[in-house]
Write a protein that binds this DNA or RNA. Structure first.
Lengths: 199, 199
DNA sequence: ACCTGAACACCGTTCAAGT
DNA sequence: ACCTGAACACCGTTCAAGT
């Protein structure tokens, strides 16, 4: 976990884990099947930290939002572990507990069973995708180059011909806006509003 | 591109590309900067195939859905290239053209400028995340083990204690449902309905 | 049961040397 | 300008041999 946080998912190698434990890479195979197995274990660990509020404490929309925020935060806490979670069906006890909680909230919101099931795929997909993107950014710019990159992109977009890309040029400001969690919250609101419309 | 389709993103190595071209890996560096550069070029190539309908031909909701379907299909056409596109700001001419088209549709739908900008992030994020998941599944089960895996998961879920996970157990059927693009289309409908609500 | 050294079959990238 | 061989510093995994 320490290696994951300092070196990211790509920096997590069997060899690095082995030397951190004061042994050789081959010794790890006495305890785990392979690297995927190690990652599964780490994912389970990450899910331990999610804390869910009392389902009676707020309207379902707010509960769903709280859930997505919590999952995103828990993935974000462990640098680019999100990539590993995507496309996986969670089977660890902590992940199952979180999923069951979400299903309960959605059921009492009046969604059909199938809608609840699909929503339980869509919501973690969104949380995972956002956390994945952020993790990528973090590991690509381990430090200070990020402002330079954003400035470079902004400059490039500003230099685009308005006759060919009229809308991009017209909306440069909004496109480049990056205010805390606003982008994430927008997507979250859209999805929750869309779920409400599905009832 | 051929290597990407047959071996996936992880199978795409400098060395493999080099031998496919009848040369050594070092020779590639006379033409491209590094592997990321190669992948950027491939992403640009993949975006060439997207074809967008006339914006007057349908209501905005249908146009947006057509756009997301097209992006997903174009990413899906090239096995797990989607992973590489996530967290990237597209700068290639084909990607820009597609984005500008989408922005035009969203603007005429009556969304605020900021909502249009954020939606232009959310929609490709969804398309990319779905394509990424599918790509992962494809490369993990290069062939036939997939049914066995699904059956295994279903069995595991069925064995879960109902008192601890009442909702998961109650909704086993809907959770395991896998009917073509139904899951993808559900998410798409949710997001588009959510965007409509945002106006 | 657990650990180890050594090896196998790979990686991306660099660099001096060639044409 | 373009290419090359050889090397550097890595990977995940296996396997016979040890304790």
């Amino acid at each position: 976990m320490k290696i994951l946080e300092t070196d990211g998912l790509d920096g997590l190698t069997m060899r690095r884990v082995a030397t951190a434990l004061g042994t050789g890479p081959a010794s790890l195979y006495a305890h785990i099947a392979d690297k995927d197995d190690l990652i599964s274990i780490l994912i389970d660990r990450a899910a331990e930290g999610v804390e869910l509020p009392d389902p009676e404490s707020a309207p379902w929309e707010e509960l769903v939002k709280a859930w997505v925020r919590e999952i995103r935060a828990s993935l974000g806490r462990h640098r680019n572990l999100a990539r590993a979670t995507m496309g996986m069906i969670p089977t660890g006890p902590n992940a199952l507990r979180a999923t069951d909680w979400l299903m309960g909230v959605l059921r009492s919101a009046g969604l059909s069973d199938q809608a609840v099931a699909y929503a339980c795929d869509l919501l973690p997909l969104y949380a995972g995708a956002v956390a994945f993107e952020e993790g990528l950014m973090d590991s690509r710019f381990a430090g200070e180059h990020i402002e330079a990159y954003v400035a470079e992109i902004a400059e490039y977009f500003a230099s685009l011909p308005a006759d060919r890309y009229p809308n991009i040029v017209a909306l440069l400001g909004p496109l480049m806006r990056n205010e805390g969690d606003e982008r994430f919250e927008f997507g979250l609101s859209v999805i929750v509003a869309g779920l409400a419309a599905q009832r």
